[in-house]
Design a protein around this nucleic acid. Sequence first.
RNA 1: GGCCCCUUGGUCAAGCGGUUAAGACACCACCCUUUCACGGUGGUAUCAUGGGUUCGAGUCCCGUAGGGGUCACCA
Length: 479
Amino acid sequence: MSKVRTRFAPSPTGYLHIGGLRTALYGYLYAKKQGGDFVLRIEDTDTERYVEGSVQIIYDTLKSSGVIYDEGPDVGGDYGPYIQSERKALYKEYAQKLVELGGAYYCFCDKERIESLKDENGNTRYDKHCLHLSKEEIQKKLDSGVPYVIRQNVPTEGTGTYHDLVYGDISVDYKDIEDGILLKSDGMPTYNFANVIDDHLMGITHVIRGIEYLSSTPKYNLMYDAFGWERPVYIHLPPIMKDAQHKLSKRNGDASYDDFIKKGYYKDSIINYIALLGWSPKSNVEKMTLDELKENFSLDGISKSPSIFDETKMKWLSGEYIKELSFDEFKNLALPFLKESAAFGKFDTDKLLNLVKTRVQIMSEIPEKLEFLTDFNEYDVNLFVNEKQKTSIELAKEILPEIKEVLAGLDEFTNANLFETLVGLSTKLGIKKQALLWIARIAITGRSATAGGATEIAEVLGKEQTISRIDFSLNLLNK
RNA sequence: GGCCCCUUGGUCAAGCGGUUAAGACACCACCCUUUCACGGUGGUAUCAUGGGUUCGAGUCCCGUAGGGGUCACCA
């Protein structure tokens, strides 16, 4: 059996959306799993939809996410060029060949005539008008420069059947397929033609693409057959949805890979998550790095039904990866986000990082988690009331001065030291340490939930600020 | 509208004629705990619907409903 070759063939229309990235990922994973090659081809035959810079975005996204192509416009390969606009001459040649083979024909009909073919639903259906032109007529029109397209000659009867690895046997009656345009009047091929020519010429063995091509595949097969080429294996993928009705699309402002990176998702979690959308591993382990995905990926795990993108689960995955990071790795990734925090520069950086490391799932959560360090204002003193710890406002009033006193006498303001001291105090006062630490934490933060416990926070704040915050809270309590 | 495809908890999903219908996220409870988070334990919750076939159906067949795709000189 020949070497597996898969491809990702996006059109440069502005962005690489999550669905596209997943298609690329599956193609990559399958090729790598089989020891084959993954190629990138740019489908820029629609000059009107071309968006400047989008080719670069495609390169960057694939490289950044680790979906590495063996061949492509910027890395070369033996089957180039890998940009369709640079293959224009090739398509014309094959289109003419297909005409000779009877699989296509010249069409000189103008827009008005096509327009007049509209049916009650507003759909036009070409009537094979030009199929019956004689060789002489065609040559005459060609010579006099009449604009033309080349259309596929689809049989009027019969059924096209093929086997899709995900969806099973698919059959479409030829009478339901129009004689679509293969070569446009500007000489550019349409997708319908170019994908067939290129997939064959580039030796693609497995075509992995979105489900939107499921029912048009029989007409591609017609061409493979007409040329006498071997059909590829087809793997159509279900869509990724934003909700039950709508596909995920950047056009609607849905987040892209890049947006997630900007939000501080751990990189691997994005790939990991989208791999899981529409594919499920054999084992129950869901958290997988790209290398692990490569090992475990198999086409039979791909599902037929659409999946809704759930950012919450991706966040969870990101958090799982972050938890495993060493302090230095975390610091490296977290620093750009920490710098956005008002606390940055005012406190010891490493201490801030430690406060936050086990508490964030995505890096952009860092500033809000540290807000309490710089934002300390009047708060509701009922926070001192905690039923479970049996604390009350009265108790706070009573012991806060004691807490202040022992802390004021402390030289070493370290977590361990503070903890030992305050626990000692609680024993002396005959109250539970949890109660005392609750009161202490509320007094220095004014919040019910904080990243870090009382002594941990006190260490970060330092002696001076800790004492002054206690004073502030005491005033508040006695108001 | 024609044609093609899809339908298991809130979400991702396993299942491929016989299961107490896995697992994960989320949610809830409890435990752990210096609050929160982490971690641990447990829990709530799913086969769209109507007919068949079969001793037996989430699994096979047909219909219905709902949803998606496609019907471009777009991919």
